[in-house]
Nucleic acid binder design. Structure first.
Lengths: 217, 217
DNA sequence: CGGTGTGAATCTATTCACAGCA
DNA sequence: TGCTGTGAATAGATTCACACCG
């Protein structure tokens, strides 16, 4: 079966599950073991996994290696994506030297900042460009995702430039609600909002497991 | 009306809406204006707001100041929460000097690290303690939330210590699925997971607006 | 009128319960 | 026997549609 559309919450859980499996050193796992670790009911786990194609479990449960593989394929995590950083302040420039992207299949290929001076001074393993070259560079290198690290006051403006340049997804670090067309995906990763979400869950005694940042989201 | 339980997704949207209103310089706003900015249907917006108590809108829409106030009250964002940082590496020690917490009602009162040496060397505006004092300090200062900034390999262990010490919520920066009792809230804020969530949305052509970080969630 | 507020209807997701397989 | 896989049942969230209010 393959009804061609995995429910949103299921996608988040699968992403989470993948992260969990990656740190697990065991060959097989059952749905109820997963329940013990994650808190999701075993029925939910089985249903989620059933959305994936080409997996079959024996009586010992699922074969972990295969399961990871299938999740990655199904969620489109295998094809390397090109990414860029917009805004090279403290945070943005720290990401320039972060080595974790590559191992995960995200290729950092450019950094942008409106200050030409900053671009010239910064030492960087990837080429840096002034903001006005954004559209050209993004289309030339077929960059799909951007880490938006500019100050809050500029976030919306920068997002609009990215959209105009054809970006497909934005990871937003500014505490701002971006207004973008529905074809562009946004995930928000702001620390204080994470704290707020926790605080809200403490009071209201009800919460959704967010899972994905930007769930910081 | 007040059925005593706001749906999880509605809470996330309200949190998001609050963030949006905070950057808005206007006195009144209607549900369809909110739709234009956020993409949520105006009916959803009205329903979400209807979960709040003590708000009444005129023909001009909602009074923004009042709306912010009511959201904050209802979601428990007014009572200051005490927070701590666990793991004082690059990321954790950067947060020690972050001034944004206080303005949002989060009082940073302690930092923890297992390296006594590091604690002695670091210059910090708040007191630092070795890990073994965690239980004592957390209960003495009634710390409710923790920013977990330790390496992935130690995250689960540290989380367990926090739980044992009585923490109520964890903002997790490590790329690890934490296993904690259901009474403890967790939000995940890991950059690469945010990218993964975006990538998954690009392929599967279906997404949930995460909004709140963690959703790493 | 141009908005809100809300029951009722619809759509979506989760859980149940059990058949089928190793 | 112990687990998966899945249609059917339930629970939950969103949207609709319209009465009502300033």
């Amino acid at each position: 079966m393959w009804m061609n559309q995995i429910p949103g919450p299921a996608i988040e859980r699968l992403l989470h599950l993948l992260r969990f499996l990656e740190r697990l050193d065991v060959q097989f796992i059952t749905s109820s073991e997963i329940e013990d670790y994650t808190g999701w009911s075993s029925a939910t786990v089985r249903k989620d996994i059933s959305y994936l194609e080409g997996i079959s479990a024996g009586t010992a449960g699922y074969e972990v290696g295969r399961l990871k593989e299938v999740i990655r394929e199904t969620l489109g995590l295998t094809e390397g994506r090109r990414i860029c950083i917009v805004g090279l302040g403290r945070l943005g420039s720290a990401f320039l030297n972060f080595t974790g992207f590559e191992q995960e299949g995200f290729h950092l290929v450019a950094g942008f900042d409106s200050s030409v001076n900053r671009i010239e001074i910064l030492r960087s393993p990837v080429p840096l460009y002034p903001t006005y070259k954004m559209a050209e560079v993004i289309s030339r290198f077929q960059i799909e995702l951007a880490l938006l690290c500019v100050p809050a006051s500029e976030a919306q403006r920068s997002a609009e430039k990215l959209v105009a340049a054809g970006i497909r997804g934005i990871l937003n670090f500014a505490p701002v609600v971006l207004t973008v067309p529905p074809t562009v995906a946004v995930e928000n990763l702001y620390v204080v909002d994470g704290l707020r979400a926790l605080a809200a869950r403490l009071s209201s005694k009800k919460g959704t497991e967010p899972g994905i940042p930007g769930k910081n989201e």
